[in-house]
Design a protein around this nucleic acid. Structure first.
Lengths: 241, 241
DNA sequence: CGTCAGGTTGATTAGGATCAACACAGGTGG
DNA sequence: CCACCTGTGTTGATCCTAATCAACCTGACG
């Protein structure tokens, strides 16, 4: 799975082609993208972007998981975004990052130099429109997460998180006939804690309780079986999303 | 301050002209806006938009304060956005609201029928760009608020809120010579609680403590004097924003 | 084999929630 | 004009959820 920075692959066979910022581009626009794009890979734990640093590039997550996080003076940390394949990193028009972006697993990005991308946005309406759409989607997601952080109990937070992962990641083919869903957790207990506004101990305890209550089944540390997704969603505190 | 729905005022003298979604429009574009815009006013407590309802219009807050809120099944409520003059309401491209929007004070909106506005966005690049810029700004604000909700103490939450209000609302001319800042709180204790992920009792107590500690001076319920903004920001738990 | 990252579980604490009483201002109607 | 009510805010007492502090487990890896 090693992609060097030089490797250039066709956009047409790109796994995130239909969900990423380039989703609504036409063949001509793709040509322009293919000229300027380049790949970068990061290993787990590596920092993709430091808060305060100059942002030289923007890009899309092709594979892997990354987090956007904010750290307070005294070290308290909050994860403010989870980046999965097709998600966009960086903000055109801003030249200094205001959050840290960390690779959680091995991450491959499809990058564009920021300056060039800004021009691209200006004269490629399809990209500008898609950018807006994605920004508004992320804003909705952030607001839903605000509700989780401000009002939900620890148990509800975990249930919501698992539901969200099941939505975005359920491995097709792993749904059992009885409707059970199998997911691989992309985050450690600590990273989940930072995302959910909890401590890692509380996360661990709530996993144990949900398991004891039969809402989830744990297979090892990272593998979760959800016997009944509706039952799990019941624990999440709100229907809808 | 009564504006009927029919009143049409010139965009050129509009108080939010330089910050709203129309900020970068040129004279020709303003002409088109002036043809289709209309004003609506709401009294305190009125609902501007119900979650689940069809969104017939989008628009900008011209004056007053409104909140965007999400309510869980059992009634727990989280305010996920504070709308002050120049802020935008609604999402082009979506026809059902997913949050409630409530007028806190008397609110005047500059509205556009949603369908018409969507066309406008498509063929007025200046508006599309500004929309993207504003969406990204709101996303940053939402992420900062996630950090507040997930990781800050009650005292820090209040201090952060007051700092934010001072930033956006400090009544020019009310800065005392010694650097003190005077602000009017746009929200009740309960509304602040919903915004900060607290109870109204905790909000009240923290106000009392900050007052006792000399960080703020209360004049009545809604009027706050901040003798030293840096001292207040010190209480907020993070520098920067 | 020892070390270390990641995870679990237990004991205790503390920050905010909850429950409750009261204060105060502004209306409203008799 | 006053009695009453209602919305808003303050403060106190108590409770409870999640944080903190701590011990220990497991598996991967040099």
């Amino acid at each position: 799975m090693e992609l060097s920075e030089q490797t250039r692959q066709s956009c047409m066979s790109c796994p995130i082609r239909h969900r990423a910022v380039c989703a609504s581009c036409d063949p001509v626009e793709f040509e322009r993208l293919e000229e300027t794009k380049y790949y970068r890979t990061y290993s787990p734990g590596q920092t993709i972007m430091w808060s305060g640093d100059r942002m030289e590039f923007v890009g899309s997550v092709v594979s892997g998981t990354a987090t956007i996080e904010k750290t307070l003076e005294d070290g308290r940390k909050q994860t403010v975004g989870l980046l999965l394949p097709s998600d966009f990193i960086g903000r055109p028009g801003r030249d200094t990052a205001i959050y840290d972006v960390m690779a959680i697993s091995e991450v491959t990005l499809c990058c564009f130099r920021r300056k060039g991308f800004e021009e691209l946005v200006e004269d490629t309406p399809h990209i500008a429109q898609r950018m807006l759409e994605m920004a508004l989607d992320e804003l909705d997601a952030a607001r839903d997460w605000m509700t989780l952080l401000g009002r939900k109990t620890a148990r509800e937070k975990i249930a919501t998180f698992l539901t969200m992962i099941a939505r975005r990641r359920s491995t097709p083919g792993f749904e059992k006939d009885d409707g059970a869903v199998h997911i691989e957790l992309p985050l450690t207990r600590e990273a989940m804690a930072d995302y959910l506004g909890l401590t890692l101990e509380t996360v661990s305890r709530q996993f144990s309780k949900l398991k004891k209550d039969g809402v989830i089944v744990l297979e090892g540390k990272r593998s979760v079986i959800i016997p009944s997704l509706p039952a799990l969603m019941e624990e999440a505190g709100d229907d809808g999303w």
